[in-house]
Design a protein around this nucleic acid. Sequence first.
DNA 1: TGCTAAACGCAAGTGTGACTTGCGTTAGCA
DNA 2: TGCTAACGCAAGTCACACTTGCGTTTAGCA
Lengths: 193, 193
Amino acid sequence: MGGMSNAIPRPGGRTARTRKEVIAAAITLLGEMPPADLTVGRIAARSGVHESTIYRKWGTREALITDVLLTVSAERLTPPDTGSLRGDLVETIAAVADFLRTPAGYALAYLGATADDKTTATVRDAFWADRFAKAQTIFQRATERGEIDDASSAQLAYEALIGTMHFRILSRRRPLDPDIAERLVDLILNGVR
Amino acid sequence: MGGMSNAIPRPGGRTARTRKEVIAAAITLLGEMPPADLTVGRIAARSGVHESTIYRKWGTREALITDVLLTVSAERLTPPDTGSLRGDLVETIAAVADFLRTPAGYALAYLGATADDKTTATVRDAFWADRFAKAQTIFQRATERGEIDDASSAQLAYEALIGTMHFRILSRRRPLDPDIAERLVDLILNGVR
DNA sequence: TGCTAAACGCAAGTGTGACTTGCGTTAGCA
DNA sequence: TGCTAACGCAAGTCACACTTGCGTTTAGCA
């Protein structure tokens, strides 16, 4: 019990620089190895930031990786408005497919499915809640345009679109074909008939 | 180097008994903890079989778990023939859903998506090839009955059905609703409209 | 029923990677 | 320019996958 210090944080300069270097190193490494091989030691070595510093800053490997991946994926949304349900969906799903084809995108899917700690669980819930909410607006607009009767199956439809792609790369370990977005959207829109 | 022995295997009695005890212990443990916590040490302790024996028999943790899960899932197939495409699909998907709701079923999905070694990769390919082939026969029969024009999107449709459920439990960590099979099949059959 | 060696138990050890800690050094910021 | 948060460094703990040499049990065959 030494004298308690006020502990004034210093978000500027060095701290911010360190954070950026660590995250950049992690993203680079994701392009060179499978996500499971992404150890804290390797990230430390590549970034030049000491391992103990990383642990002091993030606490756990899971927290670090979660931070890395959310940083990467944060940029990639804003629901499109092409004027038709099919156009909006194809654009949305194609963007997700493009992302999932990148090492960081695959890592996000992989680690999102495997991470078991509470922090990641909270972030995961928020992440998907946001995505599903944005999808809902697309179906909502389609309902107002009269393209569909109601948006009651919108959530399940969106889940099927995303889920099929995740399943393809995670469980089957097969690539996403170039026309996956069109084919999936047409399937979910029209059915097998 | 040493004198080579003829190495006559002994599949009977003790060997078979040991194998059964280890697999049974693993399945029991899957009901008590998340699949990631299933260590070889724990399986050894629960089964009464020594850890070194397990490693001599299976070689790696991945190989053991793969063996365990395939043993469990082996029983659960045979494509139904209800007379209608919807009936066949609902029955098939409901059976998969029931399985995925069990600890062993969840573990199969989880570990199938996370295991990275070559042995598991081979087994995984064979596993899904078998499932997709069986699904194809369902759509084939529907084509012959005239229910659908062609079975060209059968693979993607089946992938969407299975993939949505895997995504739900792996990536979103949410339960499969009781009516998930009917809702999914109706979506894939008729589309959103 | 007795022999032989495969299969097993046991103890001891290796290697890796997550995570911690005490201490001296660097560098934001008032 | 001084205070101290943030960092580097060294050393260490712990859990778990996987190995190995050796003595003991037991399956399977004559």
